[in-house]
Write a protein that binds this DNA or RNA. Structure first.
Lengths: 335, 335
DNA sequence: CTGTTAGCGCGTTCAG
DNA sequence: CTGAACGCGCTAACAG
């Protein structure tokens, strides 16, 4: 249905320049005669016009789009970051290209390459590998790139992270304050820099709370999944013969598996068990236990990442920015 | 860093055609001399080459991208559909442009327009309005479009839906079978076609179970949110003075608010309360109550929607396709 | 006030 | 075996 500028010009008997002026609302600024303008406007109202962004992008070397690469689009954390990013994009009429890397370096590289080939104006990556995707090295005109969520030390790029040290420290201190007994930290995806930081902060907080004997009570698994949590807790129960009095989990997925393993054990989930976990969810309210959760600030993460691209604002400062985590107390102490 | 075909041709002293043949792996098919090929290959290995998808799209009138418009990218249901769609896109080297409509018809229209302007090869929409986005009517070359999740009766387009009638029927029957007492259905977003279907199926199932007196026990709210759920349950408690023995919710968000209102009431959440809800979540396991949930099949939804675009496969059948829902029983009966 | 034109980089077609 | 040229639709610079 809709036409190109060229066609409109031919059909109305004016030039492309004139058409572009009335389309761009620059009619009076360039003193296009009213009848000319109306003729063009009438034609457009009747036949429609949609700008061809592809041609525009080719000409301007600017696609009005930004790429996002995350391990899993369905992960609630990444989904929230993405949603916020998309909102920011819409605010300056950009569009978001979302690609999943599934924690696979090869896929991640291909994803970055695909985005660069499409000429994205910026690219936000939650990296799943220590190496820089080679596409970022080879490309002709590399757009601004930002890393987030995981710090593999690409100092050349701005990096936006939750303050895992603060978050894990707060969480550990609070849980230890509630529970004088033993405490175990169940960690999935244990080799990632994020989790390493959390483990370190846990250990430090244990010492700081005068409980250095707890420093070592960390159970680690390479995967981050309910299966992994289930495995770690099952092993723990087998080894020690009884559940801990307090536990920490590195993610909700891990917590899910950990609780499932507890349920299957004869003892079930003791109501006195104090639970701390990364990632918050309103459904944690459903537990009768005291629950503390660390909520990452997805909005701030997205906003800082977006700002670091320098798409609408002139230019932000580079370097690493740490976003504070908030400690949530999900169930008040029983009266 | 990386060059265009033209630049490579100039630098290696051959023609663009030759370069394109070696890039395309058609070197021997066109009997390019080995030394020519190696010269080009060496140059590319050294300087890199990334295809300009924008120029390609302009030429071929095909962008290798598909658009997705949903009310909320962070909503777990939509996020899962999106993740699966993205996977399918990657399978045929397309890329996914995701845009949120925030249940706003104007935003939705703008989103669709933005995607069409970018020349997406297909567009998947979870519509938030009865009207067809006008961009779909005005555009020059409208790509194949598919609607999903909500049926506003755009019969001209393929539509992929969960079988809400079956899902709500199964859920109602199961909950009524567990609980002989009263039962209330708390509905958010009550005017949407999806929820209307669920309400109808609920009423029918009540009659079918010989409990026609429950047909009217539906509480409706225009919003779908914890606030709405809280409001409806609070009103209910105020009016009747006691909680129902069984309840149904149209979404997890509603359930969250409903349970919160119950908690705040003096009685709290009775362990005997039978709960049914749309949308499943593993955390429902955290409740001590019997819980039944309706899980939509996001994978099948995404796959059918994608297939209906006809991007890789030749051409699928149009019309409406209903995806069955699965009833999940979250907590076994207490021994 | 309006018209003309040269690319952006790639794919295709035709001509050697 | 290789080269040249056109056009996709738009922008921007220049020419009246």
């Amino acid at each position: 249905m809709a036409k190109t500028v060229e066609e409109i010009a031919r059909a109305t008997g004016v030039s492309v320049t004139t058409v572009r002026f009335v389309i761009g609302g620059q009619a009076e600024r360039h003193r296009i005669s009213v009848q000319t303008r109306e003729r063009v406007e009438r034609y457009i109202a009747e036949h429609g016009y949609v700008l061809n962004h592809t041609a525009r992008a080719l000409k301007l070397r600017r696609s009005e789009s930004v790429g996002l690469v995350v391990p899993d689009l369905a992960n609630p954390f990444f989904a929230r970051v993405m949603a916020r990013l998309e909102g920011l994009c819409g605010g300056c009429s950009h569009v978001l290209l979302a690609v999943a890397s599934h924690e696979d370096p090869a896929l991640e590289s291909r994803a970055v390459a695909a985005l660069l080939a499409r000429g994205v104006d910026g690219i936000v990556i939650a990296p799943s590998q220590p190496d820089l995707p080679d596409a970022l090295r080879v490309a002709k005109r590399v757009p601004p790139a930002v890393f987030f969520d995981r710090d593999y030390g690409h100092v050349a790029y701005p990096t936006v992270l939750s303050d895992n040290t603060q978050g894990a420290g707060d969480l550990t201190r609070r849980v230890l304050a509630e529970s004088p007994g033993d405490c175990v930290f169940f960690c999935g995806h244990a080799e990632s820099p994020t989790i390493r930081l959390r483990i370190q902060a846990y250990a430090d907080a244990c010492s700081g709370a005068g409980r250095p004997e707890l420093r070592g009570s960390v159970r680690a698994h390479p995967e981050d999944s309910p299966r992994a949590g289930w495995q770690l807790m099952s092993d723990y129960l087998k080894e020690t013969g009884r559940p801990p009095q307090a536990l920490l989990c590195s993610s909700l997925l891990m917590l899910e598996g950990v609780l499932q393993a507890l349920k299957q054990a004869a003892a079930g989930i003791a109501p006195g068990l104090v639970i701390g976990t990364f990632d918050d969810h309103t459904m944690l309210d459903l537990l009768p236990n005291r629950v503390f959760s660390v909520r990452q600030d997805e909005v701030a993460l997205a906003e800082h990442a977006f700002a670091a691209l320098g798409l609408d604002a002139p230019a932000p400062a580079a370097g690493q920015v740490l976003i504070p985590c908030r400690l949530i107390e999900r169930n008040a102490a029983p009266a």
